[in-house]
């Protein structure tokens, strides 16, 4: 991808991120994320309904990479099934960590394909995906529980 296009997409999501602002709706699953290695700190909330990701919102203080990655992840995951979401996150993490990945599922997230060139920023990009992964775990656990009740 052209360097300037990539930068423009990231910058646009940093300056005008989607779904900023938390909700008091308790049907959302909440996850905070922060790390020892940087000062980014964001909260995420996700609503899962009828087998699909209905909504994701976030808030917090974070750098350009972390904020934009949160925004693009939200945009990409909206409307996806649990399995699709897991697949996207796995491939996204692989991309950031320089492992093999399937770029076809990543949509706009592909703008971070060269983040590994700045190792100290990998964590910024991974912060929101780690939090979303935790939320997906919660959904999976709940599903399992339901199954065993049924």
């Amino acid at each position: 991808m052209d360097k300037n296009v990539r930068r423009e997409i990231i910058l646009d999501h940093y300056q005008n991120p989607v779904n900023r602002g938390l909700t008091s709706d308790e049907s959302y699953i909440f996850q905070n994320t922060s790390s020892e290695s940087c000062i980014d700190n964001i909260d995420l909330q996700l609503k899962y309904e009828d087998g699909k990701i209905k909504d994701i919102v976030f808030d917090g203080e974070a750098c350009a990479i972390c904020t934009s990655a949160t925004s693009i992840l939200i945009k990409t995951l909206l409307g996806k099934t649990l399995q699709e979401a897991e697949d996207i996150i796995t491939n996204y993490k692989n991309m950031i960590e320089e492992k093999e990945y399937n770029e076809k599922v990543l949509e706009e997230l592909i703008v971070y394909d060269e983040i590994y060139l700045q190792p100290n920023r990998k964590m910024c990009a991974l912060l929101p995906s780690n939090a979303l992964e935790k939320i997906l775990e919660v959904i999976k656990d709940e599903k399992e529980k339901k199954k065993s009740v049924d």
Binding site: I39, C63, N120
Partner: peptide, 8 residues
Amino acid sequence: IFSQDTSI
């Protein structure tokens, strides 16, 4: 500008 972006 987020402070970390400035220091980077």
